[in-house]
Design a protein around this nucleic acid. Structure first.
Length: 562
RNA sequence: UGUCUCAUGGUGUAAUGGGUAGCAUGGAGGACUUUGACUCCUUCGGUUUGGGUUCGAAUCCCAAUGAGGCAUCCA
């Protein structure tokens, strides 16, 4: 940890430190305001980490506030999933979760206050008329014919809206700001609309609901948020945010925007993720291929790895597309430290040790995790009949191949050195069906006095002791770096669905060492020489399922490709 | 042809008028290895362009260029 790292602040930290120094604030209060209309994804984890860690770092607190102002899209199931994901990531919000809907009463009164100040009016125009009058960014809009209703009439109408006297779409409440503003969001934004929908928390108490711009700014103010940290897309909402609290004559928090996280080979839009779920492209929000936190959790990612990743990615205002390789690096980095090493053969071929006694079984000692001195060891049964990885034998290997081939020697990890004498091949298919070897009796791991040096070490399982399991080998969901960013010749955007990877999931049978018999959902291991795996919740005691979290780096495979 | 924001190696981020422009990832090469993993070492690669201010500019100013955002009764 160098001093340079300690003094290197991102632009938000600089603002906060300045505010603290000059006495604008003496504490930091942030908030994370998800809309409960979908699951949290890796992009949200950036917003979560930033908001929570700023408060943590500067001794403040963070509110979790559900921005539940659109009852037609929102649901309690999402509320629960979101809370679970934030907790899993390792953050604690202040006290109880909050809801924008808690403030519906206050919000109504603030809206009435705006009306009394002559700064809001009820508009009878249709949605289309309002859109038309708003104009375009390059030209001013025109004022609504209802813009100059009297305060009394507006108050009366607004109350009638609340009482359900009008139908959906018949009337809205608009802030009276500036129809000629170059900022579209200042052209009398709608702040209340009629929605005769059942709300997941307030039920049928209300039939008018505040819009984001109104509810969010006021909620921040009510909660005394000092720094309202959000993504760049809300930049042009800031003028209204500031206008609103000023006109309401209430506490004015400061909104600061940062660039959201983008990952290549991934889509991040909640709407599109929902589409993947609804069309059955994936098996739910927590499908391990999804970039959702619940999906990543199921895949075997750790919260530490994700937080670390967000840390490395940094915070700035420029648009960015992060290489998924960085995320995978962070996952490997953490898993390398914490996972026990076990042996599992994913694509088996039988190997017989011809000079090993038929019924003999030896217990071999294996270190659980060489990275963890406290990790201890276990024993592994060894016998005459083994499975090894099909890729660890070649009939006619190149010089630099360190594994098995006719006449070649390798070390069986934690066991003996063996030499290949023969193999059986199915001439019809060309497939190797059996490999025959002899073992060197005095080469046993830990007591090797054979004096032999071999270049390669391979993993194995004893056939009579092995457990058959299912492995789910996941790959990226999309083949394209930017699945959501393509247009055809006419300039129409091409659906991200066109870039789905047809091989994003391979289910296959594998054989693993018997120590895994007691594995339970969520357990993480490293199958030596293959990758990190996590036990899927679909597992039962007699049918274990391992999800491939991420493979080990494989410089041999890389070399092969060239 | 309005307005806002942004511009540093392939990617991401630091340097806040005075460092040979740093770090991470990535690529290449090598050492080590009972995981072709891990670890370690070497190496590749960058200030968008043009003006200006200054003794001195990645940093300040202007312009150009490029990228992204902006009309939902979504958040």
């Amino acid at each position: 940890m160098s001093t340079q790292e300690e003094t290197s602040l991102n632009f938000i930290e600089q603002i906060i430190e300045e505010d603290l120094k000059n006495g604008k604030h003496n504490k930091v209060v942030t908030r994370f305001p998800p809309e409960p209309n979908g699951y949290l994804h890796i992009g949200h984890s950036k917003a979560i980490c930033i908001n929570f860690s700023m408060a943590q770092k500067y001794g403040g607190k963070t509110n979790l506030r559900f921005d539940d102002t659109n009852p037609v899209k929102e649901d309690t199931s999402y509320v629960n999933a979101i809370q679970k994901d934030i907790e899993w990531l390792g953050f604690e919000w202040d006290a109880e979760p909050l809801y924008a809907s808690d403030y519906f009463g206050k919000l109504y009164n603030y809206a009435a206050f705006l009306i009394k100040k002559g700064l809001a009016y009820v508009d009878d125009s249709t949605q289309e008329e309002i859109r038309a009058m708003r104009g375009v960014p390059t030209k001013p809009g025109t004022e609504s014919p209802y813009r100059n209703r009297s305060v009394e009439e507006n108050l009366q109408l607004f109350e009638q809206m609340k009482n359900g006297d009008f139908e959906e779409g018949e009337k809205v409440l608009r802030a009276k700001v500036d129809m000629s503003s170059p900022n579209m969001h200042m052209r009398d934004p709608v702040i209340y609309r009629i929605l005769k929908a059942h709300h997941h928390r307030t039920g049928d108490e209300w039939c008018i609901y505040p819009m984001y711009d109104f509810a969010h700014g006021v909620s921040d103010s009510i909660e005394g948020i000092t720094h309202s940290l959000c993504s760049l897309e809300f930049e042009h909402h800031r003028p209204f945010y500031e206008w609103l609290n000023k006109q309401l004559e209430i506490y004015e928090p400061q909104q600061i925007e940062f660039a959201r996280l983008n990952l290549n080979y991934t889509i991040m839009s909640k709407r599109k993720l929902l589409q993947l779920v609804e069309e059955g492209v994936v098996n739910g929000w927590d499908d391990p291929r999804m970039p959702t936190l619940s999906g990543m959790r199921r895949l075997g990612y750790t919260p530490e790895a994700i937080r670390n990743f967000i840390d490395r990615v940094g915070v700035a205002k420029r648009e960015n597309i992060i290489d998924i390789a960085l995320l995978e690096f962070c996952v490997r980095e953490h898993l390398n430290k914490i996972t026990p090493r076990v042996m599992g053969v994913l694509d088996p071929v039988k190997l017989v040790i011809t000079n090993y006694p038929d019924d003999q079984v030896e217990q071999m000692t294996a270190i659980n995790n060489p990275e963890d001195p406290e990790g201890g060891s276990r024993t592994l049964p060894f016998s005459k009949d083994l499975y090894i990885e099909r890729a660890d034998f070649m009939e006619d290997p190149p010089k630099k191949y360190f594994r098995l081939g006719p006449g070649r020697m390798v070390r069986l990890k934690n066991a003996y050195i063996i030499e290949c004498n023969d193999f059986v091949k199915d001439e019809a298919t060309g497939e190797i069906t059996e490999i025959h070897c002899t073992y060197i009796p005095n080469s046993r791991s830990g007591e090797d006095i054979s004096g032999l040096k071999v270049k390669g070490t391979i993993h194995w399982v004893s056939i009579p002791h092995a457990i058959e399991v299912e492995t789910r080998m996941y790959d990226r969901l999309f083949n394209d770096e930017n699945p959501d960013g393509h247009k055809d010749e006419e300039g129409n955007s091409i659906s991200f669905m066109e870039f789905l990877n047809p091989d994003s999931l391979h289910v296959q049978k594998a054989y693993v060492e018997p120590s895994l018999a007691s594995a339970i959902a969520g357990d993480r291991v490293q199958f030596m020489r293959k990758g990190y795996f996590c036990v899927d919740p679909d597992s039962t005691t007699d049918h274990l399922i391992f999800n491939k979290t991420v493979g080990l780096r494989d410089s041999w495979a890389k070399k092969q490709k060239k």
